[in-house]
């Protein structure tokens, strides 16, 4: 199995150095670059095509979400992970909407840090109870006229323009808001822990799509875009 190529964009030098060191230490990862601005990050993205992008939101030149959005649009194979101090709902939801599928707390211990990157690359994403709660309410009052928020089928509904949550995804989010961990949820739903984590990642992608549709809808409502 080839190494996981990681690109790091973080303006705080201490953090950048610490993170870079941890990635370099990990036997299954290679650091493809450690940048401090969105502009530099964009250059590196094009040049190095990493597997994982670690990005801070507060960057000196532009907002980190721009980098995330660029990735989601042009390099969908890249797993984007936001580095955040507290993992608070506002910042995380903003990142997910832009296209990130995971987030990493800055105070995570060294082992935890690389383990999270491995997890993400393997297809899993962390989720906190307030974020799960927020997602539930987001999908509940999705777009006007879109009543069927819950897909009865367990099939991926990614193809529709405004995806709804499947029954399983809804269950996972509900259990997260009640404080159950991924292993516990896996046991309750009788699936593997890895499956639970892929559900979460899929929910993140749906939110990203939904927020884009919502943006288009809002724009249309305000007359910025017209139906041609």
């Amino acid at each position: 199995m080839p190494d996981i190529g990681v690109l790091l964009v973080e303006d705080d030098v201490k953090f950048r150095t610490a993170f870079a060191a941890r990635i370099a230490e990990a036997p299954d990862m290679s650091l493809l670059g450690a940048e401090g601005t969105v502009a530099a990050g964009l250059q590196q993205l094009e040049r190095r095509s990493p597997d994982v992008l670690l990005v801070d939101l507060d960057l000196p030149d532009r907002r980190g979400t721009e980098l995330i959005r660029y990735c989601a649009e042009h390099l969908p194979a890249v797993d984007v992970m936001v580095v955040t101090v507290f993992g608070d709902e506002k910042n995380v939801i903003e990142s997910i909407e832009a296209g990130a599928t995971s987030y990493l707390l800055k105070d995570a211990g060294p082992e935890n840090f690389v383990e999270q990157i491995r997890l993400l690359h393997a297809g899993g994403s962390p989720i906190s109870p307030p974020i799960a709660r927020q997602l539930l309410s987001r999908f509940r009052d999705a777009l006007p006229g879109q009543q069927a928020v819950l897909d009865t089928s367990d099939e991926d509904a990614d193809k529709s323009s405004t995806p709804a949550l499947s029954q399983r995804e809804h269950s996972v989010l509900t259990l997260v808001t009640k404080g159950f961990t991924f292993p516990e949820i896996a046991g309750l739903l009788e699936v593997s822990q890895h499956t639970v984590m892929t559900y979460v990642k899929r929910i993140y992608r749906k939110l990203s799509v939904t927020s884009k549709t919502e943006a288009v809808y809002e724009a249309r409502k305000m007359g910025i875009l017209r139906d041609e």
Binding site: S128, P129, P130, R133, K178, G179, F180
Partner: peptide, 27 residues
């Protein structure tokens, strides 16, 4: 840092849901 996180968590929009608050602590 833990205390700071508690403060942050107490500000999260969890509505009137005590269980989600407990879940936050567990998380």
């Amino acid at each position: 840092v833990d205390d700071l996180k508690l403060t942050i968590d107490s500000l999260e929009p969890i509505g009137d849901d005590l269980l989600t608050l407990l879940a936050t602590l567990r998380y």
